[in-house]
Write a protein that binds this DNA or RNA. Structure first.
Lengths: 229, 229
DNA sequence: CCAAAAGTGTTAAAACTACACCCATGA
DNA sequence: TCATGGGTGTAGTTTTAACACTTTTGG
């Protein structure tokens, strides 16, 4: 035990709530623990923060190590510090949430994880630690944030149809949206580029594809533009 | 050094950004450090998290110890984990922000603090550590949150005039508001109770006093009400 | 030709913005 | 009686909400 301090210190971890979207429901990436405590239980990916890495770096490293995911939208969520979160000892955890396009990012279990898999947010298995609380906070944050930041696009492929986008918003906000009003509003912002492409392999009229124009968004933001709904 | 661990652990602190409002400007409560490092410099109140207390408890305890403040609106802000935040060693800090009615809560310096005083947010002395960054994040959060949560009332006395409320919003949002439109909107929400009292000791017509009706607000929230602007 | 989803405008109601004068009070 | 801020309404504009049919395509 070579690391000694004058006062007791809580352990510090990061936990990541990774959201994906599969045209049916909002999904969350869980790992099945291969370590005590809660061995065999499903949990959020995460682990201890090293003393020489930032919190963001720790979150990205743990995600890479435990699930194989890299290069995703990641943002700090909240820090959980209840006394009995972890049965072993006092552990404070900085939670992050991430958004990823589910299909183009296959996941694989690795370090400390027996398995890694997607579950519908509304229907997860029982989770280890206070991870159900963390998931609930993350879900609430996503619902709130999606209305005034264009982060929904992180959950879709680069090219998408307006109907896909609408379904995504309907799923996250859990309310139906009017098709014409939705299109008017979203196109009116001028943040979508209409592509010369349409959907493939559908048994009906193919929809036009669009992509989100991040450069224009940044430019508009500088001029005081606010994304909304 | 009786506390030893198998891996190195960052130290964990809390820091508090306490906002007040004095009819002129938004103020922040700072303490003058009486300890190394940054001895003599102004800083946010805060300190180490004890292993047997929650983060919220630590924030409240440090505020009480260093400034004498208790019973205020307190909310977690963000966790700061840059590698060189503290020149001594790796320290991760969970930042909180608090709102307090400035006049009825006198502050006094105490533990580890040579002095405690209010400064205009827009004109603080140079701050220790990364506390200027923390203050900036807290200020941005306050500006954002005040629009869709009725937290501005925490900065005013229990009984206030509509003009005081309007000035507060103008100060926080840093933009002028139209008097008639502001009154129409805020009264239209039905969250203010008109009292049978008016201002005292003013050299002109005395304004009616109101108070925020927290009970009604909670009731409306349950029915899906959303405070806005 | 049928099924399925794409795409497209209008209208009424509500919300927002801009704006100016009289009133009450104390000095 | 004057200076100071308190209190009040309306009209034009913009935004939002509700709503249904025709088109395209593949099976």
């Amino acid at each position: 035990m070579p690391y000694c301090y004058a006062y007791a210190r809580p352990a510090l971890t990061v936990d990541c709530v990774v959201f994906g979207y599969d045209a049916e429901a909002l999904q969350v990436l869980l790992i099945q623990r291969d370590l005590e405590p809660f061995i065999g239980k499903w949990a959020l990916p995460g682990g201890f923060v090293r003393v020489e890495e930032t919190l963001d770096d720790a979150a990205r490293r743990e995600l890479r190590e435990e699930t194989g995911l890299a290069d995703l939208y990641l943002e700090q969520l909240y820090t959980f510090g209840a006394l009995a979160r972890d049965p072993r000892e006092r552990v404070v955890s900085v939670a992050y949430y991430a958004l990823v396009e589910l299909f183009s990012h296959p996941v694989r279990a690795a370090t400390d994880a027996r398995d890694a898999a997607w579950f519908p947010v509304a229907d997860t298995p029982p989770l280890a630690f206070d991870h159900a609380d963390i998931l609930a906070v993350a879900h609430a944050r996503l619902r709130g944030k999606v209305r005034y930041q264009p982060i929904g696009f992180e959950l879709l492929p680069e090219k998408f149809t307006l109907t896909q986008l609408q379904r995504l918003y309907e799923t996250i906000l859990d309310q139906p949206l009017d098709k014409r009003n939705f299109r008017k509003k979203i196109l009116g912002m001028g943040l979508l580029v209409e592509l010369d492409e349409v959907e493939q392999d559908v048994a009906h009229r193919a929809a036009r594809l669009y992509r989100f124009d991040a450069a224009t968004y940044r430019r508009l933001c500088e001029r005081g533009f606010n994304f909304e709904l």
